[in-house]
Nucleic acid binder design. Structure first.
Lengths: 242, 242
DNA sequence: ATTTCTTGTGGTCAAATATACCATATTACA
DNA sequence: TGTAATATGGTATATTTGACCACAAGAAAT
């Protein structure tokens, strides 16, 4: 691994900062996962630096010849093993005193994943990587708690207007799982028959012609999100809303 | 004026870049105005540097001891004379090749103003500053056109969900002005009676107990946006939607 | 004073949507 | 075979949306 892949936990010793990165500019990733209806966030522990041993969002420096999203993807992979997921820009955080002793502005990215689909392992620059419930977060470095709070608020708004919630579920899911997802994120109770009708009327779900296995009651049908149908509808001016 | 207030047009000669700023990180402001129902953007011409004589979004470097929004506000003031307005973060643009010869990431901010309320003058580091209709934009430096395109799309989405459109109007306005504003931004035609009812039902407008002056027809009532009422409603879970 | 023109304002009605609640079908498992 | 949990369909009512009509107001021109 080259020097420039060091996560920024090493940055607090200036001499160890790789010189092919943009100083004063970093990336932080906010990865949401869903575990039994509970919203989780992926955190890592830095291996070295002032923040060694402390929990943090997975992130690090940006290389001179690297686009922002590429840097985000790379750090996520190197720190947690998570790959193949689409990161969306959240916001840039730049309070003068957010980083100790130096001025560092960070661009935050976020994504939603099905926790069970992603194996999480501590990468080369992390001693630990794991999921935390949003109500059981440990102490975090810098302004990472602030980034998380902003991200949760953002998620609650976005999930109602864009079909991003599906990313939190496994590829095949039941309508009840989907409903519980929305109830979890939005912190409300929804009427089952009405919810089903609303979703089905959108024509965004494709039936898998399969049923749940091994449940102690009537098995539910499995559906998957039909990305193509969504694209087609979007071009016709369709707008998702829950 | 101190060195650090130089807009980044001077940055292309490295030796002239002030050293109390964060290199590789800049600000750009996207200021929307409304002129006779036409959406405008505020542009400036840099006084020096490689982009001298070319139109650009008003922006520049960020000082080490300066928060992002403060930097945005400062540059806007120094370049155009515009002051007292609330800038919102839009997005960060960081394509590797967006800036010539160096790697510069820029944080874009945006705001909406009533064009007639703001006198625009070229500041110390600009030879020119003026409004351009979004369909009559001149050639722009770097990726500023891309920033504008993203901003317009963002505006069209936001204007329907947040009462930000009012910022484009004078303090006192008529309902027809407001309707034309929405028709202009959203590029649609709206039914007058229905629009009025929808707006009035929100209880966000306070009557000024005044009427239009000097018009060749029945004078319309003047209203103003009731910021306090909006705050109160928001806390009760009200959500603005057009 | 009357006309004229543009805009403000109110009404209505059908269609679409949201919401609440009831009832029943299905099926894995004990 | 029963039971429990879930899927699924029905329906009646309130609310919202969208389209359209008609007329009142009032400033200016004649």
């Amino acid at each position: 691994m080259s020097d420039s892949s060091h996560s920024y936990s090493s940055h607090v010793e200036p001499s160890s900062t790789p010189d092919n990165v943009i100083k004063a500019l970093s990336i932080d990733n906010l990865i949401f996962g869903l575990d039994h209806g509970k919203l989780d966030i992926l955190l890592i522990k830095h291996k070295v630096g002032i923040s060694k041993g402390q929990w943090a969002l997975p992130g690090g420096w940006i290389r001179y010849d690297e686009n922002l999203r590429d840097a985000a993807t790379r750090h996520l992979h190197e720190l947690t093993g998570v790959t193949d997921l689409y990161l969306e820009q959240l916001k840039t955080f730049g309070r003068v005193d957010r980083f100790p002793s130096e001025r560092v502005v960070t661009v935050a990215y976020y994504a939603l994943v099905s926790a069970e689909d992603y194996k999480v392992v501590a990468g080369n620059n992390a001693t630990d990587a794991s999921w935390f419930g949003i109500h059981e977060l440990p102490e975090l470095i810098f302004d990472h708690k602030e980034i998380i709070d902003f991200g949760i608020q953002h998620l609650q708004q976005q999930v109602r207007r864009r079909p991003i919630g599906f990313n939190l579920l496994p590829e095949k899911f039941t309508l009840l799982q989907l409903q519980e997802l929305y109830e979890g994120i939005l912190d409300t109770k929804l009427d089952k028959p009405n919810f089903r009708r609303k979703i089905m009327k959108m024509n965004l779900l494709a039936s898998c012609d399969e049923k749940q296995q091994g449940v102690a009651h009537r098995a539910a049908k499995l559906y998957r999100f039909d990305e193509e149908a969504y694209q087609a509808l979007t071009e016709k001016g369709f707008s998702f809303e829950i």
